[in-house]
Design a protein around this nucleic acid. Structure first.
Length: 539
DNA sequence: GCCGTTTTCGGCCCGACTGTTTTCAGTCG
């Protein structure tokens, strides 16, 4: 069974080609060309039908255009087939180990013949990896110390991966005539950022006829299918969705009654307000539900815009106009273009001159967008000493300034806290983006006293971002709740680098719901005038 | 491999850090 559509397949092949060429020491610009094309294609909002759909895109020329055509026709590319004959697919996974890059990954394969993380792990636990003379010293240690985490990452599912697996399994299950319905339950339905399995409830009238389906597998992920009948369907949905601490108290009260017509009815017969899945964690929601005082949780349709968007001007894959059209299509009223600033060379950061040039383009574009507003913004880099890399006379001209850290992650807590404090004390900074810097399953948050940051942010009206990228989800639900107690307001942003990334706002909203946020806590639910007032207050 | 309104060839992507590397290659962000 395969996940995804043709765009993903093409992007995956191009990305693999880039990895293999890099391992072989090919010209790095050729490698980057494949990588960039892969990123562009994976971010396209429209299904690719022919070569013509890609050939005009930035960074895609004749060679990659022809390759796309080849993949559309045959499902694969000859260059890719050639490369995997030389280097097995699984060797790419070695790079998941911290400190192992393409060159070392390739040399591990050449030395040991291991062609997957599992095979490499086998050599590690039997301590045979040391027998290969080519691998010595710190490199060897890195493999020993990092491989378990890499394997764990391979099995764990982020929210987006979990949903994708669920949808794929659902499609398969539904082809069976005895399957009446398939629904998601468990931690994934509650919107947990990382899950070790996908819990699925399968409704059938004849349990014996669907036994074989319980073994459904997809790409090595753990899938846990539970059977239910029409009689107990909603009871089981409730039972398998909530955390233990949420369900156990309510189960006592239900006294074995199992027949309900909806999940809402379960709460209602007990005199409780309905509790949305995202907050069924046993963190005080039961008491509030009893008093009918649950928060009015934010929902995806409350969002009126996105305040963190990149374009081709820095490291985005689409131009400003295409990003604007995609926002308009989603029903948004505004967006902020916030490309990277000067010091972040690797992402094509903008100099003050380029920022002003961009504003010329924005002026021309805005005339073409009736009733839709583009805010002039920047994602300004916070330097190690907490100063910003863009002069204040440039920041002054902007509608919105979001500040973030992309370098020097490994500082001591005191230093890092002071660094961020100084940055958010700058009167031009409106939003602190991805405040803890974590990448799920890849990079820990930096050492920082978030309580202090949140308290000051609450006092001074600095907005905290909930970065919706499923790889970040930063802030997380715990820090969101803490921030809310300090009076912090939030922005649910996608940090989109392509039109498709705008869809990630769903993950941000889910995380905000898990943090008990209401629309009024989130500034991009406000209409433009109110938003501008908040953004203007600090400048 | 892609790109171009000075170019169809020669740039593009950069700085910090680390390791077994004593003058540089690999990794990371």
């Amino acid at each position: 069974m395969e996940l995804g559509d043709i765009n993903e397949r093409i992007a995956e092949i191009l990305s693999a080609i880039a990895d293999f060429l890099e391992m072989k020491g090919e010209n790095i610009y050729r490698v980057m060309a494949f990588r960039k094309a892969s990123r562009t294609i994976s971010g396209l909002p429209k299904r690719i039908e022919s070569k013509e759909d890609v050939i005009s895109l930035p960074g895609i020329g004749k060679v990659i255009g022809d390759m796309v055509e080849e993949i559309l026709k045959s499902g694969t590319a000859s260059l890719y087939e050639e490369l995997i004959r030389e280097i097995p697919e699984g060797v790419r996974e070695f790079q998941q180990i911290q400190g192992i890059g393409p060159k070392t990954a390739f040399s591990i394969y050449k030395a040991t013949g291991a062609s997957s993380l599992e095979e490499l792990y086998e050599l590690v636990i039997t301590d045979r990896l040391r027998d290969f003379n080519e691998l010595r010293g710190k490199t060897l240690e890195k493999v020993y110390s990092g491989i378990e985490r890499a394997l764990e990452k391979k099995r764990m599912l982020r929210l987006d991966q979990g949903f994708a697996v669920y949808l794929a399994v659902k499609d398969t299950l539904k082809t069976n005539p005895y399957v009446k319905d398939v629904v998601l339950v468990g931690g994934l339905r509650r919107g947990r950022e990382i899950n070790n399995d996908v819990d699925i409830l399968l409704l059938t009238e004849d349990k014996d006829k669907v036994d074989s389906l319980l073994e459904t597998k997809i790409e090595g992920y753990r899938i846990d299918i539970k059977l239910t009948t029409p009689e107990t369907f909603f009871y089981d949905m409730f039972l398998y969705t909530g955390s233990k601490s949420h369900t156990s108290r309510l189960l006592e009260l239900l006294e074995n009654k199992k027949k309900f017509n909806s999940e809402e009815e379960i709460y209602n017969v007990l005199g409780f307000q309905y509790v949305p899945p995202e907050i069924r964690e046993g963190l005080g929601e039961i008491e509030l539900a009893k008093e009918h005082r649950l928060p009015n949780l934010i929902s995806p349709t409350d969002l009126k815009g996105d305040l963190h968007i990149h374009s081709l001007w820095s490291d985005g894959t689409a131009n400003i106009l295409d990003m604007a059209f995609s926002c308009i299509k989603r029903g948004y009223r505004y967006m902020a273009i916030t490309d990277h600033s000067g010091s972040l060379k690797v992402a094509g950061g903008l100099s003050p001159e380029e920022i002003r040039e961009q504003h010329e383009e924005l002026k021309m574009i805005e005339n073409r967008l009736d009733g839709f507003t583009i805010l002039k913004g920047i994602e300004v880099d916070i330097l190690p000493d907490g100063s910003l890399d863009t002069p204040e006379d440039v920041l002054k001209e902007l509608d919105i300034v979001i500040a973030s850290i992309h370098t020097n992650f490994r500082m001591e807590e005191k230093e890092m806290t002071e660094r961020i404090m100084r940055a958010i004390s700058n009167p031009y900074v409106n939003i602190l983006a991805h405040p803890t810097g974590r990448i799920l399953l890849e990079r820990d948050p930096y050492k920082v006293d978030m309580e202090k940051i949140l308290r000051i942010a609450g006092e001074r009206g600095v907005i905290m971002e909930i970065n919706s990228s499923p790889e970040r989800l930063d802030l997380n639900e715990v820090l969101i709740r803490e921030g809310k107690r300090f009076g912090v307001r939030f922005a649910i942003n996608t940090d989109a680098h392509s039109p498709l990334h705008l869809d990630n706002s769903l993950y941000g909203v889910i995380t905000a719901r898990r943090g008990w946020l209401e629309p009024k806590d989130v500034i991009n639910t406000y209409d433009l005038d109110n938003l501008k007032e908040i953004l203007g207050r600090r400048g």
